[in-house]
Structure formats: C-alpha cells, structure tokens
Amino acid sequence: MGMPNRKYADGEVVMGRWPGSVLYYEVQVTSYDDASHLYTVKYKDGTELALKESDIRLQS
C-alpha cells in the first residue's frame, strides 16, 4: 500500500470551484475518498460538495 495520492489535507482551507461555474470560493477540505478520488469540501455557507482535485486550487 502506497501513500494515498492526495494533494490537500483534511482541514486545509483552499479554493473550490462552484460546480458549473468558473468561480472559485474559499472552502475547507473535510475528507478525501481514495476510491472516487473526490474531496468533500465545505463552503462558507455550510454547503458540502464533492469536488475533483482539478476543481480545487491553493489560495493565492
């Protein structure tokens, strides 16, 4: 078993793309699913969504 190939840690605050949009919002990573390679993130309004790594970026 190798290390999970994840870029962002639980609790890390990053920018997540809103689905169907080009806009990124501040989100907190809450979990990562090794099987689906999706991150569960929480937006400031409390919305929780699963995002692909390509829809997440570090805060500038």
Rank of each mutant, 00 (worst) to 15 (best):
Y25C: 13
A50K: 15
L51S: 00
Q59L: 15
P19F: 05
V14W: 01
T47F: 08
Q28G: 02
G2I: 06
Y32D: 00
E53H: 05
A9C: 09
G11C: 07
T47G: 04
E48P: 04
Y24P: 01
K52S: 12
V41M: 01
V27M: 12
W18C: 11
P19M: 05
V22N: 15
A50E: 14
D55Q: 07
M15P: 01
K7N: 05
S54K: 10
V41F: 00
G11K: 05
R57V: 11
Q59D: 12
D45H: 03
G16E: 00
D55M: 06
T47V: 08
T47W: 07
V41C: 09
M15C: 15
L51E: 00
Y43C: 13
D55K: 02
G20R: 05
Y25L: 10
E48D: 06
L49V: 11
L51V: 07
G11R: 03
D10I: 11
R6G: 03
P4C: 12
V41L: 04
N5H: 05
Y24N: 01
D33A: 03
N5A: 15
A9G: 09
G11N: 07
K7L: 12
L49I: 13
T30I: 15
P19E: 05
L51P: 00
V14N: 00
Y25P: 01
S60F: 10
K42W: 06
Q28W: 09
H37D: 14
L58W: 10
P4R: 03
W18M: 09
V27E: 00
Y39F: 02
K7Y: 05
G46I: 03
T47K: 08
G2Y: 03
Q59A: 14
G20F: 06
W18Y: 10
K52F: 11
L51Y: 02
D33W: 02
V29Y: 00
S54T: 12
Y39C: 02
K44Y: 11
V27T: 03
H37Q: 15
D33M: 02
D45K: 02
V13R: 10
L23N: 10
P4V: 11
K44L: 11
D45R: 02
V13G: 03
R17C: 04
R17Y: 02
Y43W: 11
D10H: 04
A35M: 13
S31H: 11
K52D: 10
D10R: 03
V14A: 05
S60A: 13
D55L: 03
H37N: 14
D10K: 05
K44W: 14
Y39T: 01
E26L: 10
V13Q: 08
T47C: 12
V22G: 13
Y32G: 00
K7G: 03
M1I: 15
S21H: 06
T30F: 08
D45I: 03
T30N: 06
M3K: 15
V22A: 13
D33E: 04
L38C: 09
Y32P: 00
V14S: 01
Q28A: 07
P4S: 08
G20N: 10
S21P: 01
I56A: 01
M1N: 15
V22Y: 13
S54L: 06
Y25F: 12
L58G: 14
S54P: 05
V14G: 01
P19W: 05
N5E: 15
H37S: 13
S54E: 14
W18N: 04
Q59H: 14
Y25T: 08
E26V: 11
M1T: 15
Q59G: 13
V27P: 00
V14C: 04
D45E: 03
Y43F: 14
G46W: 04
K42P: 00
S31M: 08
E26T: 09
L49D: 03
M3I: 13
A35S: 12
V13T: 11
D45F: 04
E53L: 04
K52A: 12
P19T: 03
H37C: 12
Y39E: 01
M3G: 15
S54I: 10
R6Y: 03
W18L: 11
D34K: 06
W18K: 11
M1D: 15
A50F: 13
P4N: 12
E48F: 12
R6V: 03
H37T: 10
Q28C: 11
E48M: 12
V27L: 09
K42T: 11
Q28R: 11
S21Q: 09
Y32W: 09
R57I: 11
